[in-house]
Simulated scan of single mutants.
Amino acid sequence: MPFPACRVLRAGALTLVAIFLVGLGYTMSVYRSVNVFTPPARIESLGRTYILGNDVFSREELNQRYGRTHREHWTLERVGCLPPSHSIYQWQNVRGEATTSAFLEWGNRYIGYSLSGGP
């Protein structure tokens, strides 16, 4: 390979490595963890901090979690996103008030989080 082509290839490889490392660093800072392949221990939604619980639900279980009378006044709404593509859901009423639990969509599962701290 001629000398200029080798230099261009090396510069391109270094650029790709730098982009990958910056992306990994950003994802680790958002997840607040080195392991970005598991749900984070804390998430923030609607200005509140939620901590990881032990509950894992399917979408059907989440919809059936509350009785019919509760669902008439409360709806499960997407209130945020955890990059790159994990949605955060909460039960909200007509006035926009949310319950003390949040659910992180992780694949086909919904992982429960509970409100951290007091009012």
Results as ranks from 00 to 15, higher is better:
residue 24 L to H: 07
residue 74 W to L: 05
residue 21 L to T: 13
residue 21 L to G: 05
residue 18 A to P: 12
residue 71 R to D: 11
residue 27 T to M: 09
residue 26 Y to F: 08
residue 46 L to D: 00
residue 32 R to H: 11
residue 37 F to Q: 10
residue 58 S to L: 07
residue 77 E to A: 12
residue 55 D to G: 13
residue 72 E to L: 15
residue 67 G to Q: 10
residue 23 G to R: 02
residue 21 L to N: 06
residue 54 N to I: 10
residue 59 R to D: 09
residue 37 F to T: 13
residue 26 Y to L: 08
residue 73 H to I: 11
residue 36 V to Y: 03
residue 37 F to A: 12
residue 11 A to V: 12
residue 9 L to K: 13
residue 55 D to K: 12
residue 16 L to M: 07
residue 10 R to I: 13
residue 73 H to G: 06
residue 23 G to D: 05
residue 23 G to V: 10
residue 19 I to G: 04
residue 77 E to P: 00
residue 30 V to C: 02
residue 36 V to P: 02
residue 17 V to Q: 11
residue 22 V to N: 00
residue 68 R to G: 04
residue 64 Q to E: 08
residue 56 V to W: 06
residue 20 F to S: 11
residue 46 L to R: 09
residue 61 E to N: 12
residue 20 F to N: 08
residue 60 E to D: 14
residue 78 R to A: 10
residue 76 L to K: 01
residue 29 S to W: 07
residue 79 V to E: 06
residue 76 L to D: 02
residue 25 G to K: 03
residue 17 V to H: 12
residue 19 I to A: 06
residue 18 A to E: 09
residue 41 A to W: 06
residue 52 L to K: 04
residue 33 S to N: 09
residue 9 L to R: 06
residue 55 D to M: 07
residue 64 Q to T: 08
residue 52 L to R: 14
residue 17 V to R: 11
residue 66 Y to W: 02
residue 20 F to M: 15
residue 39 P to L: 06
